[in-house]
Design a protein around this nucleic acid. Structure first.
Length: 441
RNA sequence: GGCCCCAUCGUCUAGUGGCCUAGGACACCACCCUCUCAAGGUGGAGACACGGGUUCGAAUCCCGUUGGGGCUGCCA
């Protein structure tokens, strides 16, 4: 029986977890969960200059947010110095590594001048690299710290990693690491799977200059972890049945490395938005409310003390089906909590053309005495419109702009009902007066 | 430059020699539904980079060309 797979996600804590890294972590996690294997987290912090503890913490909390739990680790390479030193000593003693003249205290690996290093890649097939195209590379820096090649080779052997799943950008380094492993006395190879790169609009590897690459930013912009995770799984992989909204349990049970595509994928924000909208709409209303509260309570576009949780509760289900991110929620309900509406000029120009003033006038009269309930408000507005030869779509426009400030928003009559008669009437009168003063001017 | 990887609609993909007049999804357009906007429904436009082979038959296999990308660091 083949040993249970062991995979690792090995980020370097020199920055936040970015989208590409998260996808790599996800695919490792999916493979481990699918196969019943072990998912290891290993922090590759051999570059002491660039490593920062806040990144070590940040990467872990972001992985947790995404729901990617690890079974072992985090191991820290900075705490495993003696292993690498031992390996370096062994290489130097056997003549497979040396201290070059004029490059004080670094150690270089002596790459064999002949032969070919090849390996099996589950996604790309057999890959071969001629050894004579490789130069002797540094395995120990002048600081005494190991380089990526050394630490990576030693740790993968030591941790019994069976499958190396990582970005394609690391493909060329595979030959070096394999040569090192061999020199260290390890003959068996792990199985490799080099994932297609995630690219930006310019088709170049996703990096900081593309903006919006920090995973934590997506959380802060109102994306749901489940939605982001679902979208990330679709970058380079697709379920057999063509579904795109796929519960994570199904992804786990269907995921196979052999099915991963080879070509680089563009991270499409529009599709992410769509998927996030699907997830938001699928939320139980109570959950949607709970998830929305942070956006409503911190830095809202209204005086914070005006916020009324009951009002939001009543509107929640209507808002839920209209947003793609949680960040859009405050903008959908701001008119409930501001002291005075600010009119969107375009909406105003469009809605307040004649006979808008007359419609508002009639609405004020009728709204003053009618039963304050959505269906009644609906009916009355319909009738007011008819008096002026307007369909409801046209008749409701001035009311909507007067009350909410914009021509688009949640269903109007529910909104009026929740807002309350006094405030609605006050806003209708204010708008009516504004039309009057504009006509004079 | 050298080495390596890749190549189906704008984007993510399905497709593993005949089921392909190439399917789905996002985005886009039109219509329907409708109090606005969404959501939903229907329809539309839109791709096998090119050239050679192999084969009765190629998006699928092989070779080449072109194009794109990655690596080439005492980063990972």
């Amino acid at each position: 029986m083949a040993p249970s797979p062991r995979v690792r996600f090995a980020p370097s804590p020199t920055g936040f977890l970015h989208v590409g890294g998260a996808r790599t972590a996800l695919f490792n996690w999916l493979f481990a969960r699918h196969t019943g294997g072990t998912f290891i987290l290993r922090i590759e912090d051999t570059d002491t200059e660039r490593t920062r503890e806040e990144w070590v913490d940040g990467i872990q909390s972001t992985l947790r947010w995404l729901g990617l739990d690890w079974d072992e680790g985090p191991y820290r390479q900075s705490e495993r110095a003696e292993l690498y030193a031992e390996a370096a000593h062994k290489l130097v003693a056997s003549g497979q590594a040396y201290v070059p003249e004029g490059e004080a205290s670094v150690i270089r690996f002596r790459v064999p001048k002949e032969g070919v290093t090849s390996f099996t890649d589950l996604i790309r097939g057999e890959v071969s690299i001629k050894n004579d195209t490789l130069e002797d590379f540094v395995v120990v820096r002048s600081t005494g710290h190991p380089t990526f090649y050394m630490a990576n080779a030693v740790d993968d052997v030591d941790m019994g990693v069976t499958h190396v799943i990582r970005g394609e950008d690391l493909l060329p380094s595979t030959a070096r690491v394999l040569l090192l492993r061999e020199a260290l006395g390890t003959t068996e190879q792990p199985v490799f799977a080099h994932l297609p790169l995630l690219v930006g609009q310019d088709r170049q590897k996703l990096s900081k200059r593309h903006g919006d690459v920090a995973l934590e930013d997506y959380r802060d912009k109102g994306y749901l972890a489940e939605a982001l995770r679902n979208y990330l799984a679709l970058l380079g992989w697709a379920p057999r049945d063509g579904r795109e909204i796929v519960p994570i349990e199904d992804v786990v049970s269907e995921f196979q490395l052999e099915d991963v595509t080879k070509a680089a994928a563009y991270f499409d924000h529009q599709k992410l938005d769509h998927i996030n909208g699907e997830y938001i709409r699928a939320l139980p209303v109570a959950t949607f409310v709970r998830e929305s509260l942070p956006w409503l309570e911190s830095d809202p576009p209204w005086p914070p003390e005006n916020f009324d949780a009951d009002v939001f509760d009543r509107m929640a289900s209507l808002v839920q089906e209209r947003v793609k991110t949680l960040a859009e929620v405050p903008g959908m309900v701001d008119f409930f909590f501001v002291d005075e509406v600010t009119y969107d000029e375009k909406s105003w120009q469009k809605a307040m053309k004649s006979p808008a003033a007359a419609v508002l006038d009639d609405a004020i009269v009728e709204y003053e005495k009618c039963e304050w309930e959505p269906t009644v408000l609906h009916q009355i507005t319909l009738e007011v419109g008819e008096r002026h030869g307007l369909k409801l779509a046209k008749a409701q426009a001035p009311v909507r702009v007067a009350v909410t400030g914009r021509s688009v928003g949640p269903p109007l009559f529910e909104s009026l009902a929740v807002l309350g008669r006094e405030r609605v009437l006050a806003r209708l009168r204010a708008a009516w007066q504004r039309i009057g003063s504009e006509e004079e001017a």
